[in-house]
Design a protein around this nucleic acid. Structure first.
Lengths: 360, 360
DNA sequence: CTGTTAGCGCGTTCAT
DNA sequence: ATGAACGCGCTAACAG
C-alpha cells in the first residue's frame, strides 16, 4: 500500500508561491486564523482548494509539534481474540467514549509475535499508551516502557509508578465465594483464567499460582481461598482448573472434568462470565439442574450474563467505566497518585442457590 | 498530554557522535544491517541502548518514508455506539485479524460532530482508510475522499471507483421474506434500520425510503417488498417501522406498536438481529408465542442469535470475513475491480414457523 | 499583520 | 563499508 500520487505533492510551499506569500502565512491561514486578515485567509484557502491541497500533512505536523492526537492501546494476546472477548469490548467502548469526547484517535497496536512487537510498538505514532492486562514480564510491556511516553496501566496491579485503574480482585472474588459458602456449599471448585501466559490448561498446582504472570488471576484465586479458609474448609481440597484465553469452550471442558469427579462439587467459582457460561453448558450436558444441583458464580457481569437462562450470579465490575477512566487519566497526563480502584458488586441472580442437602 | 521528557531527546545524531560515526551509519545499523560490519553494528546498538535511545522516532521516519504502518477505520456514528454493536464488532474482528497478520496498526477515527470531523480525519496518520457503512452524503466520507489515500468501502454499494466489499442486500432480504411467505404468512411488517441519518423513528413513508442515505437499508427493504409483491400480496399494506441506531430498545418499541395494530402481523422482518431480538422481547411482553403466534426473521446472524430462545431465524452474512477482506484489499492496494460481493445464507431456526391458521 | 530563519528526526542518494 | 549533503512538510520564534 504505497502512496504514489504525484497529485498529492501540493505542499504549503507551493501554495505560498501561488498566492505570493510566505509559507508561514499559509500555515497560519490553516492553524491560526487570528494571525492574518480574513480576506487574505479566505484567498489562501480558496487557492489551496483550487490546487487540491489536502490540508497540512499530518506527518510533517506531527514531527514538528511532537504530538499526534492519538493514543495507543495495547492488549495482551491477539487482536482477533480481544475483539471476541466481551470484557475487552466493554473496556474498549469506555476508552472510545472519552476518546471521542476529546477528539483523540485510538491506535490499536497488534501484539503478535515477539519479533514484531518491538517494531510495531516502536513505530506507533501516539502520545501515550493504555496498557490492558499485559502479563508481568511480557515483551510488549517492555517495549511500551521503552517509549517513555505517558502510560496508563489497567488490570496490572503489580506495575508501579504509573497511573492505573483496576479493581480489588481479591475482595471481589472473596465475596463471590462467601456467597456460595453462605448457601452451605461445602465442595467448591474453581475455574480460572490464565496464571501463566503459556496456554496451558488443566489442573493447577500451587507453584503455578505463586509464579503467576497475571496478578489478577492470582488475586482472584486468593480471594476465593481466603473465604474458603475463613469458613473453616480445607482450601487444598479445592480443585483449580485453568482455562486458556478466557474461552467458553475451554471452560466447558474444564467443568465437565470437575463435575465428573467425586465427590462432585456443588459450587463452581468462575473467574469470568464466559468461563461461567461454559460451566453452565457443561452442567446442562450432564443433566445437572442449576441451581438445584449446582451453583455457578461468574465474574465481570458482561451483558450476556443477564440474558442467558439461568441468569448468571456474578460479580459486576464496571468494565466500560474502566476504559473511560483509563483514557481520561492518559489524556490528562495524570500522575500515578491519581490511580483509581473501582468498585465491584455481587449480583445475585438465578445460577446460585442453596447447596443440595441430599447429595449422593 | 504533552511529552516533555528531556530524556527522550536522544537522537540518531547523539548516538552517532557518541560512537564516533556518522548519522547514516547509525541509521543503517537499525534499518539495513547488511550495510555495515556486524561488529560495528553491535557496538552501535549497545551504545544506543546505554544512552536510552528508543529506536528511530516514528514521526521522523513517517515523514521521511511517507507511510505509517497503520490503516484508518472510519465508522458511521459514534465509537461508543460502534463498540456496542455486535455487527461492528464482528467486522472489527475481521479487520484486526488481517491487520495483525500484516503487522499493521489500526487507527480508529472518532467521527462525532461536523466541526471536528475535518480535523480528525485530516490529522490521521494512516496509509489508507476503511470506510464502514457511512451514509451517502456524510461529512466524514467527504473528508476521507479529500485525503486521496487508498480507500476500501464497506456496505456502501453506491460509492463507485474504489474497491469495496458488501453483500447482495436485496437478495438476502428477499430470501428472508420468501421464507415467511412460504410459511403462509399474509400479514408482514418490517422493522428497519435507518434510512436517513437523522435519528427519526417510526412509520416510514415511500419518500423517505427513496431518499435513503443508507443504501443497504434501502436495498433490504426492496428485497422484502419484491418477495411480497411476487407472492401476490400488496406491498403498500406492509408497515415499515424505522429504528434508530440499530438499538434493541428502539425495536422493542416499534414491535410493540406493530403488534398492537389490527390486523396484527403474523410475521416480522427485521433488518438486523438486534432489531429482531427487540421484537422477540415485545412479543414476550404481549404474551405472544413465537413462532406459534408470530414469526420473526432477523438479519446478520450475530453470535447472540443462536443463543437466545427461541433461536433466531436469520440471514447470515459473513461479518468477520467482511472485515478481513476489506483490510486485505486495502493492504494490497487492490484496484476497484477487485471488489467482493460476499455470500449470504438463510439460517432457519426456531423463531419462524407456519402462519397461525385460526387467527382472529 | 507578515516574512525570515531554523530546525523537528529521519532515510536516501552519491560519493569516497 | 562509510560519510556528506539533502529534503520530507511543517510550525515556533522572532523581527519587521
Amino acid at each position: 500500500m504505497e502512496q504514489d500520487n504525484p497529485l498529492e505533492s501540493v505542499t504549503l510551499k507551493d501554495i505560498a508561491k501561488a498566492v505570493g506569500v510566505s509559507r508561514t502565512t499559509v500555515s497560519n491561514a490553516f492553524n491560526r486564523p487570528d494571525q492574518l486578515s480574513p480576506d487574505l485567509r479566505q484567498k489562501i484557502l480558496t487557492v489551496a482548494t483550487q490546487m487540491g491541497y489536502l490540508g497540512p500533512n499530518p506527518m510533517g505536523r506531527m514531527l514538528r509539534t511532537g504530538h499526534t492526537g492519538a493514543i495507543g492501546l495495547v492488549f495482551h494476546d491477539s487482536l482477533s481474540y480481544a475483539f471476541a472477548d466481551p470484557t475487552a469490548i466493554a473496556f474498549l467502548q469506555g476508552v472510545a467514549r472519552t476518546c471521542e469526547a476529546a477528539q483523540a484517535s485510538l491506535l490499536i497496536v497488534p501484539v503478535v509475535e515477539d519479533v514484531a512487537v518491538q517494531q510495531t510498538i516502536q513505530q506507533a505514532a501516539v502520545d501515550g499508551f493504555i496498557v490492558y492486562c499485559l502479563p508481568n514480564q511480557s515483551d510488549a510491556m517492555t517495549q511500551v516502557l521503552r517509549r517513555q511516553l505517558p502510560i496508563v496501566v489497567v488490570d496490572q496491579p503489580n506495575v508501579q509508578g504509573f497511573p492505573s485503574v483496576y479493581i480489588d480482585d481479591r475482595q471481589a472474588a472473596y465475596e463471590a465465594a462467601a456467597h456460595l459458602l453462605k448457601l452451605n456449599h461445602q465442595r467448591l471448585a474453581i475455574i480460572s483464567l490464565e496464571f501463566l501466559d503459556d496456554y496451558c490448561t488443566g489442573l493447577v498446582d500451587l507453584q503455578r499460582i505463586q509464579n503467576a504472570d497475571f496478578p489478577i488471576t492470582q488475586r482472584r484465586w486468593q480471594g476465593y481461598v481466603d473465604a474458603i479458609q475463613e469458613a473453616g474448609l480445607e482450601a487444598d481440597a479445592v480443585l483449580v482448573e485453568e482455562c486458556a484465553g478466557n474461552s467458553e469452550e475451554s471452560a466447558f471442558q474444564a467443568a465437565l472434568k470437575l463435575l465428573k469427579s467425586t465427590p462432585r462439587p456443588t459450587g463452581i467459582l468462575a473467574m469470568s462470565d464466559r468461563l461461567a457460561i461454559g460451566a453452565l453448558r457443561a452442567a446442562e450436558q450432564l443433566g445437572l439442574k442449576v441451581p438445584a444441583d449446582l451453583s455457578v458464580v461468574g465474574f465481570d457481569d458482561i451483558p450476556l450474563a443477564s440474558r442467558i437462562r439461568p441468569r448468571l450470579t456474578t460479580v459486576r465490575q464496571p468494565l466500560t467505566e474502566k476504559g473511560s477512566i483509563a483514557a481520561e487519566l492518559l489524556l490528562k497526563n495524570a500522575p500515578a497518585s491519581k490511580s483509581r480502584i473501582l468498585k465491584t458488586q455481587l449480583v445475585v441472580r438465578e445460577s446460585s442457590g442453596l447447596a443440595p442437602t441430599s447429595a449422593e
